[in-house]
Amino acid sequence: MTAAPGEIVGPVRVGPVAHGGHCVARVDGRVIFVRHALPGELVRVAITDDSHDRFWRADAVEVLEADPERVSPACPVAGPGGCGGCDLQHVSAAGQVAWKTAVVREQLQRLGGYAWPGEVEAVEPRWGWRTRLGLVTDDDGRTGMRRHRSHDVVPLPEGGCRIAAPDPVLMVDGVPTGPAEVVERAAGRDWRVAADGFWQVHPAAADTLVSAVLEGLEPRAGERAFDLYCGVGLFAGALAARGVRVWGVEYARDAVEAARRNLADLEGVRFSAGPVERVLDRLPARTDLVVLDPPRKGAGRRVLERAVARRPRAIAYVACDPAALGRDLGYLLGGGWRVRSLRAFDLFPQTQHIEAVAILEPGPA
């Protein structure tokens, strides 16, 4: 089979969902990752990338047999060839939860050997939720978002981005358009965060994740905890408010400075800046609890080895990528740990992304 970008192929019967916001189809032995489709649909696709020997990429541009969960996208630039920000506007709310559940289960089983029996939990609101928004400008000065897997700019439609909050923290070409620092409210207190720093973008995300971590760890006053990849101190603050002594570690020095300011009123909280795998060697030899909230690539074996060497009674792993979570779970499960609970949340509606909180404890799987 041969084809070139822009060529129409089909009819194609779409296969299962895959991590990355697409489904898998096969045509004459060729794997094609298809966006803007649902499993089981019969579609015609436009090839968008034929540069890989093992697979191609394509967009579903004509639906011949539609799945019952298909809906019309609310945004006029959310479809094939449009903005790359929303992967799933063509899928109903229930269908998105089912889609993400399938992805999480597959990634955890394949990469971690863990059979997750749960389902992704929906979180409101599903529209107008993105409190931080990054835009770019094209050569003509028009503001928009990148096309999927491209540097091309798709101008914002009339009415703006459908998933953006009414007054988001706005970045244009990487530069904040408003105050350099903003105040966020979560876990019962205010947090001062740099406009270009990290903070969860869904208004319910911070409280949802803090609640899941606290419920899972059941912290006790007087215990010790490590908050690794601590950012501006969200989980450290929640633990310290329960009477736990916390050591927070974050690579970004400006985030550590913000964490110290945010939690200056709490006793028993210390922060260090630097690579987590190195700073860990300077922390106490024992701890009761560990919170891990790594970037998308995950914590990795070196950090996990140093964390479990402290013999904590429980670990909370907060993940924004099910693949990284699966890989790291595989290491922990192989090292004598077991999953006590694992919850996943749809904190990025209309997109492929999820957040998950796994609670682990020593013992057989």
Rank of each mutant, 00 (worst) to 15 (best):
E250V: 00
V290H: 05
A180Y: 03
A205H: 09
E305Y: 05
V12L: 13
V31W: 11
R253A: 13
G82D: 04
G10C: 02
A94G: 15
L135A: 09
G128E: 13
Y114E: 10
H22C: 12
Q89W: 08
V97S: 10
Q89E: 13
A204P: 08
S92A: 09
I163P: 10
L239P: 04
V175R: 09
G298V: 02
H52C: 09
E69M: 05
A323P: 07
G274P: 06
C230Q: 08
P312F: 00
P76A: 04
F198V: 10
W337C: 00
G237T: 09
A180M: 09
C161I: 06
C320L: 03
R189H: 13
L217Q: 00
V14N: 15
R340L: 12
D173W: 01
G95A: 13
A165E: 11
E121C: 10
V339M: 10
D67C: 10
V357S: 03
D173N: 14
R270N: 03
R26L: 07
G216N: 07
G237P: 13
C75S: 12
R132H: 15
E257R: 14
D167Q: 15
A3K: 04
G178D: 02
A236S: 15
D265G: 07
D288W: 08
V175G: 00
V244F: 13
P322Q: 08
W247Y: 14
A93C: 04
Q200K: 01
D59F: 08
A115H: 15
P312E: 02
A221C: 04
V103H: 13
F55D: 00
L239C: 13
L342C: 06
L209C: 08
T101K: 03
V279W: 05
A307E: 06
E124C: 06
G363K: 06
R282G: 14
L214H: 04
A319G: 05
A316G: 09
G233L: 07
D49W: 11
V34S: 08
E250P: 00
I8C: 08
A241C: 09
E215Q: 14
P349I: 01
D196A: 14
G178C: 12
T137M: 13
V123A: 10
A241E: 15
Q96D: 11
V193A: 11
R57M: 10
E257N: 03
D139M: 03
R306E: 09
A165Y: 06
C83G: 14
T2E: 15
V120R: 09
G85F: 09
A180E: 15
L64K: 08
V244Q: 02
R146C: 11
M1P: 08
E277D: 15
S51L: 13
P176T: 02
V71R: 15
G112C: 10
L347C: 04
C86R: 07
R340Y: 06
K100W: 04
K297C: 02
A307K: 00
E65Y: 03
V12N: 12
A205G: 12
V63E: 01
P312I: 05
A186K: 14
G82T: 03
A58V: 07
P73H: 04
R147W: 09
R338A: 06
G298H: 06
G84Y: 06
G84I: 03
L156C: 01
A212E: 14
D167K: 15
R189V: 14
R306V: 01
V17I: 06
V175A: 05
